[in-house]
């Protein structure tokens, strides 16, 4: 059994980690979605006024007849997953747009993307 210090296993993890950052992300083409522009504008306004907007949806997804909503950051990530960008690219793009500490941002984006990959809403293109 390989221990957690096994260099091969560790190396494997690192390679996987690098790969993860480089792999292009693509939305599941069966998912119908739309940016709610007017709502998005309201949310941006609220954000600028210092309000907590994390539970306000600006992108809607229709999956098997059910509607799901993504908040401002989630919606941006979703919109960017066009098969041309990787996790690393997403983090870069969001760092420019949102004033958040870089490591914190990377962790949040990665967690969110992982969740969507697990749900089958995103895949590696």
């Amino acid at each position: 059994m390989a221990s957690s210090f096994d260099p091969e296993t560790l190396g494997g993890k690192i390679t996987q980690g690098r790969n993860r950052l480089l792999k292009k992300l693509l939305r599941n083409p069966d998912i119908v979605w739309r940016v709610e522009k007017r709502r998005e504008a309201e949310i941006v306004k609220a954000l600028e006024a210092g309000e907590d907007v994390s539970d306000k949806g600006s992108v809607i997804l229709i999956i098997s007849g059910m509607m799901h909503q993504l908040n401002l950051v989630g919606g941006k990530i979703w919109s960017l997953c066009d098969g041309q960008r990787s996790l690393g690219d997403l983090i870069e793009a969001l760092a420019v747009e949102f004033e958040v500490e870089r490591d914190e941002l990377a962790e949040d984006v990665e967690g969110f993307v992982d969740d969507l990959l697990q749900r089958g809403w995103l895949k590696h293109g």
Partner: peptide, 9 residues
């Protein structure tokens, strides 16, 4: 939820 929907689904 639908208050500010930009169009029908």
């Amino acid at each position: 939820v639908t208050e500010l929907f930009s169009a029908p689904l």
